[in-house]
Write a protein that binds this DNA or RNA. Structure first.
Lengths: 193, 193
DNA sequence: CTTGACAAACTAACAGCGTTAGTATATTGT
DNA sequence: ACAATATACTAACGCTGTTAGTTTGTCAAG
């Protein structure tokens, strides 16, 4: 048949669409092929295997996340920048939960390129903290703390782990961000003193 | 055949063992059956299906986690108690990473009992914070923040997301815990004032 | 002590999965 | 126009969880 027009980008795009609509754990190559009106085996003309496809999707997710984060912090400083960064991260996780899950399953792949992509995730965080007077080492640690808070919150809320109490989850989120900003200010004092 | 002696508890125990040694994503009912010297279909005399087995394992993990946490905080107050709690949580996640992963895949099951088990996770955290003068509502929020930090840190470190910089991960962890204690102290001031 | 009932094992099969090998065909470049 | 390439196909393999139907060992009641 060899119908022209079906590109590697089409396959990846359809996979992203399917993951978002059907959920990551309902994703399958056979249904993906069906959506593209080809057989599952034909997918292998465009991708090496499922791992590679996930990796490719991971690139997309990371680049999208970086985009919204950089967009959020431009023109902002210190606490305002950090809050905007966190909000963008949080919104992304809530609006595209299935796609967000792909990120965590990524680094297991021994692809070095994906390692480099990791820096894309870190960069906006470092930029947002730039207004604070911190050592480079402090920033490396704080970047990890920020990601821990954000990822932990998003994934647990998504998994339904926050339904035990009747208090508003949004308020809990605000408190989490406030905690990080307190840590930033405290670290700044330590760096100065 | 009907050889006596193989109980439901044996099946769950062997499953836990297999998950810890082979990894959660390498777990399969057929190999589990092999370890018990029976065929895969025979497992269904002891468990309803895989979901139920996961749920059962989830109970075990949560009870183990609660155990080490309560053990860690007994006789301690305030920051010392919180640090000990976090350390116990962290150690559990690092020492039994595959088992730890089961927790997150749990609440998706609509089992109400698992919801109740969620309180087992919360209880030690509430106890550790008891020394602080906080409102009940503050504690409900702070409990979520604590779990976010801990889970986020553990799962990202485990996934290899913290390899980007050469700074010590243990130091990052210490900073994360310090951040939470700062938030506790700050919340306390707000509650008093 | 035998017999009936129950629990726990078995075999065989199904539908789904990712993946590979080998084959046909439509488009593209010479 | 023809050869080469890219893209599709079919068929199959081994894996997965799961179900149906059957055999068999054990334990309790008559």
């Amino acid at each position: 048949m060899a119908r022209q027009g079906l590109t590697r980008a089409d396959v990846i795009g359809a996979a992203i669409e399917m993951i978002e609509s059907e959920g990551l754990h309902n994703f399958s190559l056979r249904e993906l092929a069906g959506r593209l009106h080809i057989k599952a085996a034909s997918l292998y003309n465009h991708i090496r295997n499922m791992d590679e496809l996930y990796t490719e999707i991971g690139y997309y997710v990371i680049s999208e996340l970086k985009k919204v984060q950089l967009d959020a912090i431009t023109g902002k400083q210190r606490a305002e920048a950090v809050k905007a960064l966190a909000d963008a991260y949080y919104r992304f996780g809530k609006e595209r939960p299935e796609l967000y899950k792909v990120i965590l399953s990524l680094p297991m792949v021994k692809n070095d390129a994906i390692h480099r992509a990791g820096f894309d995730i870190v960069e906006p965080i470092m930029s947002a903290m730039a207004g604070y007077h911190l050592t480079r080492e402090q920033m490396m640690h704080l970047q990890r703390v920020f990601r821990s808070i954000m990822h932990g919150f998003i994934s647990q809320e998504e998994a339904g782990c926050f339904r035990q109490f009747p208090v508003d989850v949004g308020d809990s989120y605000q408190m989490a961000v406030r905690g990080f900003i307190l840590l930033l200010e405290n670290s700044e004092k330590e760096a100065r003193g």
